[in-house]
């Protein structure tokens, strides 16, 4: 399997598409060609790093491509590569922010290759903040097998203890991978995953301070997140967990269906629960390394 960043190139005209694909490949990208929104949708998966698309396609336009990409791979970079001037393009929705490279400038394909190669390797169009050391962090998370961890009773016991100790609806331990939070243990609900742009833990892993949201409806970061309403998360407290190198791999959290405050004593207790989870994870890693 190639280590090169993967790019989907969507242009309707076969010869133009082949020329674009050649230039992208010369820039070190693994290119897959598609000619329509339909074929792009079929080819899309989470391994795609970047999508380069014409605006006019036989079965839709560039914004249809953006919608298709966001539904499968929300952080993937999309680049509009078109002869249309920006002012000639219809206006997209606020969630359709994209990169744009005009085809009418000289050597536009080479410029596109430059922008795409850099973007595919280094840029995200995620709708959330990403830690500065994301690459190292993701490598650290990949060291853990969530399914294996989920089978361990210790995490279930801890989260069960947390729900009764704090008198809350749900307590969980989650690991944050590239696209979603995956729950190792979850007491009070049967959540398996939550997309990163919906998860409050996306913010928790950014700081070593305890994250408290007393009322999601009153916090502008979360007031419009439908997934939190569907999961009945009205209040939240979470502490990030790190590996021994300091990479934030996930969080230990409390949620409730009602607005709620946490005393300093409760937050100290939450920190102790998180320390315990961190220790358990370190122990599992050590056992894995020794095996």
């Amino acid at each position: 399997m190639s280590d090169s960043p993967t790019v989907l190139c969507a242009q309707p005209d076969a010869s133009e598409r082949a020329e674009t694909a050649d230039v992208l490949a010369d820039a070190g990208l693994a290119v897959e060609e598609v000619e329509s929104v339909g074929t792009l949708t079929t080819a899309l998966d989470r391994s795609v790093d970047c999508v380069v698309t014409a605006f006019d396609l036989p079965d839709g336009d560039g914004f249809d491509v953006v919608d298709a990409v966001r539904s499968v791979n929300p952080a993937c970079v999309v680049i509009l590569y078109t002869e249309h001037a920006p002012s000639d393009l219809p206006r997209g929705g606020p969630e359709q922010v994209v990169e744009y490279v005009p085809r009418m400038v000289p050597e536009s394909r080479e410029r596109l290759a430059d922008v795409a190669a850099m973007a595919a390797a280094e840029v995200t169009q995620a709708a959330y903040p990403v830690p500065e050391t994301e690459t190292e962090r993701l490598a650290a998370v990949q060291q853990y097998d969530v399914d294996q961890l989920a089978a361990i009773d210790a995490f279930d016991r801890l989260t069960a203890l947390m729900t009764s100790h704090f008198d809350i609806d749900v307590a969980f331990v989650g690991l944050m991978d590239e696209h979603e939070e995956r729950f190792v243990a979850c007491e009070g609900a049967n959540w398996r995953t939550l997309s990163r742009e919906d998860a409050i833990c996306t913010h928790t892993i950014l700081s070593d301070e305890t994250m408290v949201v007393e009322d999601t409806h009153e916090d502008p970061r979360f007031a419009e997140v439908d997934a939190l309403k569907q999961l009945d998360i009205r209040s939240y407290a979470g502490v990030r967990i790190t590996d021994k190198q300091g990479n934030a791999i996930g969080a230990v959290c409390c949620t409730d269906g009602e607005p709620r405050r946490y005393t300093q004593t409760e937050l100290d207790d939450l920190q102790r629960f998180a320390d315990e989870v961190e220790e358990q994870l370190l122990l599992r890693r050590r056992l894995q390394e020794d095996a």
Binding site: P94, E95, V97, V98, T124, A127, V130, E197, E224
Partner: peptide, 18 residues
Amino acid sequence: DVRAVYRFLNTITGRIGT
């Protein structure tokens, strides 16, 4: 929804960075 601004900022700062 502030998440739209987050995506915008990732895109703009990404271009500036690269």
